[in-house]
């Protein structure tokens, strides 16, 4: 089977293989941080940084990977970059790092990253691995920011902490709370599945 090219890898990450809505990976972070657009954006960027660095690093080392030690090397690489991101957030975005709390260190176990290392970076060249990581990052950003926009707008009447909806809007507080994450994600996912199936039938 022909391996996908850089362009295909990039485009696949955006919508056809969107990490949130199509692969349904990294949902722990997705559900936890989408109660506001700002934390969702920060989380997507942090995960993206780790993903791009890890994919690049693994792709450079792919000729030297031992099959039975590859997962160990993936984890080691990912954990290092996650620690770097965690320290950078604490140094330059302290209130945001307090708000995200344990979810930044938890990027280590985000399946999106290890799956991209396994699927793409350990097999393909550096430019393709980077294109793949950037595509998946943007896909994850689309997923997180769309969920966070819905939750923050309907739950709090704001977007990115700016007042959008009039005071007369009954703020659906539940959407800002943990159950709201499941409700919003379930309904959005259902809508997207319906849309995709309808398009395929047509």
């Amino acid at each position: 089977m022909q391996e996908p090219t850089a362009g295909e890898r990039f485009l696949n990450g955006l919508l056809p293989e969107n990490p949130t809505y199509r692969q349904m990976l990294g949902l722990c972070a997705t559900l936890a941080v989408t109660n506001g657009v700002k934390p969702a954006f920060t989380m997507a960027c942090s995960t993206g940084f780790v993903l791009i660095c890890a994919n690049a690093m693994i792709s450079l080392m792919r000729k030297h990977l031992q099959p039975h030690l590859r997962i160990l090397i993936f984890t080691l690489t990912i954990a290092t970059f996650v620690t770097v991101v965690d320290r950078l957030l604490q140094a330059f975005f302290y209130p945001m790092s307090q708000q995200l709390g344990p979810y930044v260190p938890l990027i280590i176990v985000n399946c999106i990253i290890i799956s991209r290392c396994e699927v793409c970076a350990s097999k393909q060249s550096l430019p393709i691995a980077i294109a793949d990581a950037v595509g998946q990052t943007l896909g994850f950003l689309i997923g997180l920011v769309s969920l966070a926009s819905l939750r923050e707008l309907l739950g709090n009447g704001t977007w990115c902490e700016f007042e959008i909806l009039p005071q007369s809007w009954p703020r659906w507080r539940i959407l800002m709370l943990p159950p709201g994450a499941f409700i919003t994600f379930g309904l959005t996912l259902g809508f997207i599945e319906w849309f995709v199936h309808r398009k395929q039938r047509a």
Binding site: M61, H64, L65, Q66, L69, L72, I73, L76, T77
Partner: peptide, 10 residues
């Protein structure tokens, strides 16, 4: 020898 990459990376 198998673990050399792991050791160097660590």
């Amino acid at each position: 020898k198998q673990a050399s990459l792991v050791i160097v990376l660590a």
